[in-house]
Amino acid sequence: MARLNVNGVVREVDAEPDTPLLWVIREQIGLTGTKYGCGIAQCGACTVHIDGAAVRACSLPLSAVEPGQKIVTIEGLAPGADHPVQQAWAELDVPQCGFCQPGMIMASAALLAQNPRPSEAEIRQEITNICRCGTYNRVLAGIKRAAERGQSG
């Protein structure tokens, strides 16, 4: 049994130590907002925060998560889903199918936490998640809007 702190709640999970964190979150903990898209750290659909940093959970085995680390998933990003990134996304109608969006939002929120005023070039460099529907330009606009919001408020 491993103990994980997910969205502020400590849970016991029963999974083999080499199980990727993604599948522990989805199948043992039952939080399905974190998505499977590739399983090899290519697409970012599985992005979660570990101690505030964006991590691709499909490529992190359960055994590599330290007991004290705090994991946050899309469900726990902000109470009432009112993180500035989520607000900007709602205003700009960013998602199409939406499948990549939890990962996009988590990656964007982590970027802004680390770099509250990213340049457009930095955003393009840092957000490497795949969206097959092609929402990139609205994602870009959404991050800029959330960054402005962060500064003014």
Binding site: R26, L31, T32, G33, T34, K35, Y36, T73, I74, E75, L77, A81, Q86, W89, A90, D93, V94, P95, G98, F99, Q101, P102, I105
Partner: peptide
């Protein structure tokens, strides 16, 4: 849009 922002949208895989 809203359920696609907080992980609550259920896809087939979920």
């Amino acid at each position: 849009t809203l359920p696609k922002l907080d992980g609550s949208q259920v896809y087939g895989i979920d």
